[in-house]
């Protein structure tokens, strides 16, 4: 038991914190916690895409928007239950993820990043122009989440629901990493040629990674839509995509711990850097560059890094 605990203290501690924290903070604190959980799913999705598969996306706001609008429209227009809406949001995003990744069938290298750039602009434009469906610049109101007939009117209850979803998806990610597909992706990332010689179908695995990543982001978008209660196309700009990338990289692309740290960074940075206002994004950009130069493993690798520095000194 103690051995098990020593090996797994990080997830246990995080779960305990997740269960206790909502009781310790006020209403706004719960909103912050909910935001962290929403972003941590996006961060997790980028961990799959960049960390496992070695592919970059600068268009994740597009998938996020598809999840958000997908769920909101299914719930408001078709009267579907909230959880079905969230699932639909994820699935819609995943289908588009497959389309964006289709060029992987033929191209190597980082051309897919360019496709994601085009995709993000495409989604933004369609959302803006398709006024009858999305409300265009007027925006779209989204009802509060409802589960088995109970409306979750305050964020306190919603945080717990999100916690269940996030834990579930994190567990799925860890299993995915150890699955055949997960290992194949990492083999491809290390050496495409060697992996292909060993019989791994590159295109298929990269499309799977894109779909899974888009699915997570879609779920996150859906949860976000019901948290905020109002969708406007201005939320899903290119800047959002770039913030997502920044968050995932700064947290660390290796694990869910990094994903969570990234989400905390993205949520807390506006609170901390409030005086900077306009310069806030400049700070994001600079931290992104500095992180790549001096701490490529992200915040999650900080303890390891400090330990090795100390060892070198003695």
């Amino acid at each position: 038991m103690t051995l098990w605990l020593r090996k797994n203290w990080i997830p246990v501690a995080l779960l305990a914190a997740g269960l206790v924290l909502p009781n310790l903070v006020e209403h706004y604190g719960n909103f912050i916690l909910a935001s962290i959980l929403v972003y941590s799913l996006v961060s997790l999705s980028l961990t799959i895409l960049i960390g496992f598969a070695g592919q970059i996306s600068i268009g994740h706001a597009g998938f996020w928007a598809l999840g958000a609008y997908g769920s909101a429209l299914v719930v408001t227009e078709l009267g579907a239950p909230f959880l079905v809406g969230v699932l639909v949001g994820g699935i819609v995003a995943a289908l588009f993820g497959a389309v964006v990744a289709l060029p992987a069938l033929r191209v190597q290298g980082h051309y897919l990043a360019i496709a994601t750039l085009g995709f993000a602009l495409f989604v933004q434009q369609v959302l803006f122009e398709w006024e009858s469906l999305t409300g265009g610049r007027q925006g779209l109101f989204v009802p509060r989440p409802e589960i088995f007939g109970y409306e979750l009117t305050d964020d306190y209850a919603y945080v717990y629901l999100m916690l269940v979803i996030v834990v579930l998806l994190t567990w799925m990610t860890e299993n995915f990493r150890r699955s055949h597909t997960g290992r194949a992706l990492m083999a491809l990332k290390m050496s495409t040629v060697a992996a292909e010689v060993a019989g791994i179908n590159r295109a298929r695995h990269i499309i799977i990674a894109f779909m899974l990543s888009a699915f997570y982001t879609g779920i996150s978008g859906a949860l976000y839509a019901h948290l905020i209660g109002f969708l406007s196309t201005e939320t899903f700009t290119f800047t959002t995509s770039l913030s997502f990338l920044t968050m995932a990289v700064i947290g660390g692309l290796g694990s869910y711990v990094g994903a969570l740290l990234g989400a905390i960074y993205l949520t807390m940075a506006p609170e901390v850097f409030r005086e900077f206002k306009d310069a806030q994004m400049v700070v994001y950009g600079l931290t992104l560059i500095l992180c790549m130069q001096f701490l490529p493993g992200g915040l999650a690798s900080l303890p390891e890094r400090l330990r090795s520095l100390r060892r070198r000194r003695t």
Binding site: I56, I58, L242, L245, T246, V249, M281, V282, Y284, G285, L286, L288, I289, M292, Q293
Partner: peptide, 8 residues
């Protein structure tokens, strides 16, 4: 990623 950082 660094060039994207430069973009921002």
């Amino acid at each position: 990623i660094v060039t994207i950082g430069l973009w921002i």
